[in-house]
């Protein structure tokens, strides 16, 4: 109501000229933002087109020349990629690393978050504070000791080692996010279930988790993409046989100019999954990223 009154009172003050200026300004804003969006799209488009051209075409002329010669586009590079056992294996490794690392983080963090939010025990506040403190801890502090530890346990160079490390460093944020969400669930719901004699883990499963679905979804997507996109952790802890696609492609970087066909197709192979997740679950993804941005 007030808004309507204000805008009615506001508009007669503006003269024809100022309205014209603001309309032109509006047009300029549209054009400017369209240019910005183009700036964001062109780099990705460039890599995509490069991945669809043969190596000889890529070294002879820029990818933008397909605008005049679209016949150059070919799927040869992707066909080659399908026969490249190193890349295929590393792609599967990425799946084998990302899926368990995500499931484990969600399960373990949900348990811990419930414990911190709904069970009283001495040191509860202290423990929660610790989790908050660990939120921004850089992984670098654990690379050397982690390598030593995994070496002693025989896990160095294995997928299990990479997964465990990802799980440990994914936990602080996961626990923090879920604890905050769990703590916001109405007390009556939890208490009512307890009155009915439900055990704690039944309360978690039947009452808390169904309500917390959005938070679980955001966390799952964030953690999955985080692990999927990782390079550093796998670079340290994985060996040739357990390397994910980022590490496998990294070996081709040295001759960038001549390897562009392999690098661009490989990069797109690794991007397909994140982009699909992003487009399908935009809302949860954005929420997860905003919540986990300090990681």
């Amino acid at each position: 109501m007030t808004v309507v009154e204000v805008s009615v009172a506001g508009s007669p003050r503006r003269g024809v000229l100022s309205r014209l200026v603001s309309r032109l300004g509006g047009g300029a804003v549209q054009v400017g933002l369209a240019l910005v969006a183009l700036f964001w799209l062109v780099p990705v488009l460039g890599l995509l087109v490069a991945s669809l051209r043969e190596e000889s075409a890529n070294t002879a002329s820029g990818w933008w020349t397909v605008l005049t010669a679209p016949a150059e586009l070919t799927l040869t590079n992707y066909a080659d990629l399908v026969h490249n056992s190193t890349v295929l294996r590393s792609f599967l490794n990425t799946v084998y690393i990302a899926v368990p690392a995500t499931v484990l983080v969600v399960v373990i963090a949900a348990l811990a978050a419930y414990g911190l939010a709904w069970i009283e025990f001495p040191g509860r506040l202290w423990l929660t504070t610790l989790v908050v403190g660990l939120l921004v801890l850089p992984v670098q502090v654990a690379l050397i000791p982690g390598a030593k530890l995994f070496g002693a346990l025989g896990l160095f160079g294995t997928i299990t080692g990479v997964v465990l490390f990802h799980v440990a460093f994914g936990l602080p944020f996961a626990i923090f996010l879920l604890r905050n969400f769990f703590a916001g669930i109405p007390r009556d719901l939890v208490e009512a279930a307890r009155m009915d004699g439900a055990r704690e883990w039944v309360v978690l499963r039947r009452v808390v988790l169904p309500i917390a679905k959005p938070a679980i979804a955001s966390l799952t997507i964030f953690q999955f993409l985080w692990v999927w996109n990782d390079l550093l952790v796998a670079l340290v802890f994985a060996d040739q046989d357990s390397a994910p696609i980022t590490v496998a492609l990294r070996a081709q970087l040295r001759q960038f100019g001549t390897n562009i066909d392999l690098l661009s197709t490989g990069a797109f192979l690794s991007m397909v999954v994140p982009l699909a997740v992003f487009l399908l679950f935009q809302r949860y993804f954005v929420q997860g990223v905003l919540a986990g941005s300090t990681k």
Binding site: L111, A112, I119, R124, V141, G146, A168, F169, R194
Partner: peptide, 29 residues
């Protein structure tokens, strides 16, 4: 919210997370 009934019940919920955090985050630090 009102916490649960007994401190001992917290152990199975927190143990997996604590073991991993202690072994791969705190000890390395």
């Amino acid at each position: 919210p009102t916490p649960g009934r007994s401190p001992r019940q917290a152990v199975p919920f927190l143990l997996p997370a604590l073991v991993l955090l202690a072994a791969l985050v705190l000890y390395p630090l």
